[in-house]
Design a protein around this nucleic acid. Structure first.
Lengths: 152, 152
DNA sequence: TCTTTTCGTTGGCCTATCCAACGTTGGCCT
DNA sequence: AGGCCAACGTTGGATAGGCCAACGAAAAGA
């Protein structure tokens, strides 16, 4: 009797789900990231990128444009402030707010993370040719565009 | 002076990243899921789908075909066994293994979850026309195919 | 003025992913 | 036979992400 062979593939019910696929791609990205940097550096990268593109921001604005919760932004900033990648000052014009600004050290850190991130992207998309990569990117962008940005 | 307008969009450095997009789509899927069922039901769905497609499996086989860690499979099965959706018996042919099998109740639960899952997919992909949905699905499938299946 | 909103902060909950270790069991090899 | 190694289930823990509730301070609106 042939021993019933163990399954190698995920069940069709899962393969059919775009959300399941997206999850798998996301954790794949996380795995590839771990090989090159601390996992939490992804969050740092996001915040630093926002500051670099938009200049000084309040914590709430950072959260809104990144789709992050205020609390989580706070935690990331504690880390970044601790390593002097970011300055945190009370906004004199609105003392409820903190003005978060990028330090030179933070800018350098951003460049460093960008290099690692690029490598991760290349590894993640290695199986697709350039045209397919562009297609995928555009489809994901369109999908995200149709959903309201929301930071919890 | 025009007060510097708060940014609404994520920075370009993030928009350019497929891994960031995948993460966002994944959490979007999670959010939509939460509206209809317990978040943890996604894991239940995956395990039940595997059992339904392949018949009785060992815990290790479940983990392998779903890409899950053995430990996590264990936790999911504790839940499913507690609600009688799954039977767990020692394999008489190999007493290291447990034979996990779907109960009628589990089959019904699977159908119920499938309905909710379908609704989530529809909501997630609502912004894409059918051809785009197919394209996205195929590109994600191809991407996942090029990466070795690995369960931690 | 009083009320409502925004902001930063603290603390906590749930899920996901992953790693390390243990005892049990089976297969393999000499 | 014996001894070694691999696989299995299980326990416990680490890190991370996403989310919610509540608080005091401060601003905006009525």
């Amino acid at each position: 009797m042939t021993t019933t062979e163990p399954p190698t593939r995920p069940p069709q019910r899962l393969l059919a789900l775009a959300s399941w696929q997206a999850n798998k791609v996301a954790t794949l990205g996380a795995r590839l990231t771990t090989r090159r940097m601390q996992l939490s550096a992804r969050a740092d990268f996001a915040v630093l990128a926002a500051l670099e593109e938009y200049g000084a921001l309040s914590q709430a604005d950072i959260g809104r444009c990144l789709g992050l919760d205020r609390n989580d932004v706070n935690g990331i900033l504690n880390r970044l402030e601790g390593s002097r990648h970011v300055d945190r000052e009370v906004d004199p014009a609105d003392r409820r707010r903190n003005v978060i600004s990028l330090t030179p050290s933070g800018g350098a850190y951003l460049q460093e993370l960008q290099a690692h991130t690029d490598a991760v992207q290349a590894a993640l998309l290695a199986g697709l040719d350039p045209a397919e990569q562009r297609q995928l990117h555009q489809l994901l962008a369109k999908l995200l565009d149709t959903h309201p940005p929301q930071s919890a």
